[in-house]
Write a protein that binds this DNA or RNA. Structure first.
Length: 579
RNA sequence: UGGGGCGUCGCCAAGUGGUAAGGCACCAGACUUUGGAUCUGGCAUUCGUAGGUUCGAUUCCUACCGCCCCAGCCA
């Protein structure tokens, strides 16, 4: 007998996604065709190490690494670490782990914007020399007022026309640590009347006496995103710099620096960020869930973070497939979470070994099966994968079946067990329910007395008679106890949320996003199952051994996703019809 | 009376002058020792609206409507 292997590591069964074209691919193909940059394609994934990556980042990661790979190019991992107050080394490690887990390799191209602080400072000096940047003494509040509004032009700072010498000296004293935080900034001299607010003399450098997780106290002035990002791209000779739509307004500035500094002309291209139904993807909201204890942490299996998806049981292959299928465009969109789940099922169906587990146990006694005896039956490990082989499972007089696989009064189209009805125990025997035992006080069904047909061993009827229902089961004596956590979406479906959405997203939280079941009975082959191993619990869904709380003597499974459930649909339709 | 974007099936998304790909969801049927998987069929006479150009427009032009982003010394 061979135990089902926890799950095949990489079956290489990742779908051959016939990558549909998209506007970014077209631009790149075009550039390659005309030999721009010698036909070279070089992208980068540039997270700020101030939090955990989520599925929205996965879209960007797959896009950047994928597009580069498809063109024989490279993709760098670059940490956009220009704000020491929000960033930590711990996040750097977590991000690297997540990108690796997703299956991407940046080889030795691990960069940090902070590596370029020296060069960036030189460029700032260069701009001052050209008369294109100046030191401003206005306070943050004044700068805001001088900036004007969306519909009114701003006005120029009284410090805007300082001489080059004065600016040089002032910037030097900023850098030397002689000035207090916030007392001065370095600004680009562009156009205070520009329609695009980003061009109204944007701040290039601010004074911040803060320790940086990599450069320590080497600097007390730090460049702003706009003065660091594009130039970092340029330094790394990035050909196509992909970012989300909210940076469209920054592109003129991105290009302004390239022109004024006469540096490598990377091209910024913006695409729509991912939104997923029934979840939140904003860092602020996710943090709120964690801080308020509404989830157990950043890797709570209900979270959309990469670490949570991993813990939940998602495969990297399914996430990559999802990223391919949603495409890339510029229209704001919300992808149905059902697509993500579809990708997951497609992958897991091919590779997850099947196993029997009873989540809400109901005792069944086979009255005509000899007491104290047992036998082994053969069960297929994965009907989708002949290579997976089969295993032996014990059968005996006392079994556990699922509570909801029995009804005292069977509704229409209910194929499962009911008084007098015969069903097939998967890979076992046909059994017939003879008697229902109830708790005398509560009336609750506590045990079923059944008989089995010894001629139907393995689940086949020699006389050819049919049974409509096949149910899963576990032999009581050999069953292993387990805790099972049933997860559902973080938020209720949009049509149930309606108007209250505007007020607070927490009003939309799904109250049933977690249900913990203890006393579940799983088949003996699962004993000692390794963390993160994935299985299909037959007829129920895909489950993954929790990577935090599970141990050999206390198995904990997370429900990754349910199987499609046609019966549930029929039931729902029946309920609605009768209502 | 600001600037920048976007509007193709319930949700994504190709197509961009020659008469609407694909996926998800959904519906129906076949098959089935998972009500799973698989298979078959159905699902936009129409591309935000209204005009115009053209033999012909989702693709070009004009106007309008709707939605998103921008006023951090965050990214």
């Amino acid at each position: 007998m061979s135990k089902p292997k926890p799950d095949s590591p990489d079956t290489g069964n990742e779908p051959e996604s016939q990558t549909t074209s998209n506007f970014i691919r077209s631009i790149i193909d075009q550039d390659v065709a005309v030999g721009k940059h010698g036909g070279r394609v070089h992208t980068r994934f540039p997270p700020e190490p101030n939090g955990y990556l989520h599925i929205g980042h996965a879209k960007s990661i797959c896009l950047n690494f994928g597009l580069a790979a498809d063109h024989g190019g490279l993709c760098n991992l670059r940490f956009d670490d220009t704000n020491p107050i929000k960033e930590e080394a711990e996040y750097v490690e977590a991000i690297k782990e997540d990108v690796r887990w997703l299956g991407f390799d940046w080889e030795d191209r691990e960069y940090y914007a902070s590596d370029y602080f020296g060069q960036l400072h030189e460029w700032a000096v260069e701009l001052i020399r050209k008369g294109k940047a100046y030191v401003d003494d206005l306070t943050a509040e004044e700068i805001r007022q001088y900036r004007g509004t969306l519909t009114e032009a701003g006005k120029e700072s009284p410090y805007r026309d300082r001489t080059v010498e004065e600016n040089l000296a002032l910037f030097e004293s900023m850098r030397a640590g002689e000035l207090a935080d916030g007392s001065k900034v370095l600004r680009a001299k562009i156009d205070m009347a520009a329609g695009n607010l980003n061009m109204r003399d944007p701040v290039l450098y601010r004074i911040l006496h803060a320790s940086h997780h990599r450069t320590g106290d080497d600097w007390c002035i730090y460049p702003m995103y706009d003065f660091a990002h594009g130039q970092s791209d340029s330094i790394e000779k990035i050909t196509h710099s992909l970012c989300t739509l909210e940076f469209e307004d920054h592109r003129p500035l991105y290009d302004w620096f390239i022109r004024e500094l006469d540096i490598f002309p990377s091209r910024q291209i913006e695409f729509a960020r991912l939104n997923l139904s029934q979840t939140v993807l904003s860092k602020r909201k996710l943090k709120q869930l964690v801080d308020e204890g509404l989830v157990s942490g950043w890797d709570d299996p209900r979270m959309p973070t990469i670490s949570a998806l991993r813990r939940r049981g998602y495969t990297p292959e399914s996430i990559r497939d999802f990223a391919d299928r949603i495409g890339v465009a510029k229209a704001d969109s919300t992808v149905d979470v059902a697509l993500l789940e579809h990708c997951l099922r497609v992958d897991l169906n091919k590779r997850a070994p099947r196993v029997m587990a009873v989540l809400e146990p109901l005792k069944v006694v086979i009255e005509n099966y000899p007491e104290g005896e047992s036998e082994l039956l053969e069960a297929v490990n994965n009907p989708e994968d002949p290579e997976a082989g089969s295993r032996q499972i014990p059968f005996s007089r006392e079994l556990w079946i699922e509570k909801n696989d029995f009804r005292e009064e069977a509704p229409k189209k209910y194929f499962r067990l009911a008084p007098g009805r015969e069903v097939r125990l998967r890979y076992g025997f046909f059994i017939t329910c003879q008697e229902v035992v109830k708790d005398e006080t509560t009336g609750e069904v506590v045990e079923l007395r059944c008989t089995y047909d010894p001629e139907t061993r393995g689940g086949y009827a020699p006389d050819g008679r049919k049974v409509r229902g096949t149910i899963h089961w576990v032999s009581a004596a050999e069953a292993v106890n387990a805790e099972v956590r049933l997860y559902d979406h973080l938020l209720k479906p949009a049509d149930e949320v309606k108007a209250d959405q505007a007020k607070d997203f927490k009003a939309s939280l799904n109250p049933d996003s977690l249900k913990v079941l203890t006393g579940c009975k799983v088949e003996p082959s699962l004993e000692g199952a390794a963390r993160e191993s994935r299985f299909q619990f037959e007829r129920q869904g895909y489950f993954c051994v929790d990577n935090r709380d599970s141990s050999p003597d206390h198995l904990v499974f997370n429900r990754t996703v349910t199987l499609r459930d046609t019966w549930a649909k029929i039931e729902k339709a029946q309920r609605q019809a009768s209502a």
